[in-house]
Design a protein around this nucleic acid. Structure first.
Length: 282
DNA sequence: CTCCAGGTTCCGG
DNA sequence: CCGGAACATGGA
């Protein structure tokens, strides 16, 4: 079946899908196959255009944040050696607009996990508990709804290799399913109030809350401080012994209006450089 | 075998 | 308020 074409200037599809924001896209032919919410989508990049499953044009455009003014955004990043290197290495990376529940839940399962493990957990949860959708004879699965996970028990989730995170995901699924925390309503709150509200969820601390705010709530100034960003700020920005909160405030101020975007560029660049960097030798 | 991974939570000083 | 430890699992 013929694919639809949408313009996508200043964009690198493979980079954006594989830089640690989303974890379920798989390579198919010359492109990528994945779910956007409950819709199966194939996306292929050809120069400054994307070829997509017909009917998914608007969904893809929104998910991949093709409306973000990327040139302006990277222009607000500070000019220093590390940021310049990350900006050059990550040309075309966009911060994707994720569904709220999927994002919150996925980052709960991401605690102390390597990126490939997070992907494995996501696929297992989807395959076992997500709504099945057929795409050209292939079966894909949406991320399982909170109400579905809420009916499971901890053992069922532990069987998905969640480890101690199983209890957190289960409790959070129940809180969301019962309306104790309304993810939609969080969207109307200011940054600080929204972060506090998300932190009421089990397994959601400041870092995961900031991931959700950045990746699902359009708060492009939020900076999740994970082990990589902490290392970057300590070793490249001289913040030898600052607390996580101190790092967060420095980053928010230094990296500017789109600090979350800058953080994602630094995060991915540092990960690609591992070996030259980190590895804890003092 | 040891170390570490997009942390959170609980506990003692 | 702060530093440490526990918490599961799998790949390097």
């Amino acid at each position: 079946m013929p694919l639809a074409v949408i313009p996508a200037p200043e964009f690198d599809l493979a980079l954006s899908l594989n830089c640690g924001q989303v974890f379920h896209w798989v390579a198919r032919g010359a492109g990528w196959l994945g779910m956007i919410g409950d819709q199966a989508c194939y996306v292929e990049q050809r120069g400054a255009e994307l070829l997509v499953t017909p009917g998914t044009e608007e969904v893809v455009r929104g998910y991949l944040a093709l409306d973000h003014p990327l040139g302006e955004i990277v222009g607000t990043f500070p000019r220093d050696a590390s940021m310049d290197a990350a900006r050059a290495a990550c040309t075309g990376m966009r911060v994707i607009r994720q569904p709220m529940w999927e994002c919150v839940a996925t980052f709960i399962t991401s605690a102390q996990k390597a990126v490939p493990h997070i992907a494995q957990i996501s696929h297992t949860l989807r395959r076992r508990y997500g709504r099945a959708v057929t795409w050209e004879g292939e079966t894909l699965h949406a991320y399982p709804e909170a109400a579905v996970l809420a009916k499971l028990d901890e053992a069922a989730l532990r069987a998905c290799a969640l480890g101690y995170r199983a209890k957190n995901l289960l409790r959070t699924a129940r809180m969301v399913a019962e309306g104790e925390v309304d993810l939609q309503r969080v969207a109307e709150m200011g940054d600080d109030e929204a972060r506090e509200e998300l932190c009421r969820l089990a397994g959601v601390g400041v870092k995961v809350a900031n991931c959700a705010l950045l990746f699902a709530y359009e708060r492009l100034a939020m900076v999740p401080i994970d082990v990589w960003i902490a290392r970057i700020l300590r070793e490249w920005y001289g913040k030898k012994r600052a607390t996580p909160e101190g790092l967060r405030k420095f980053a928010a101020k230094y990296f500017g209006r789109y600090a979350g975007y800058a953080q994602q560029y630094l995060f991915h660049h540092a990960r690609m450089m591992k070996g030259r960097f980190g590895r804890g030798k003092r």
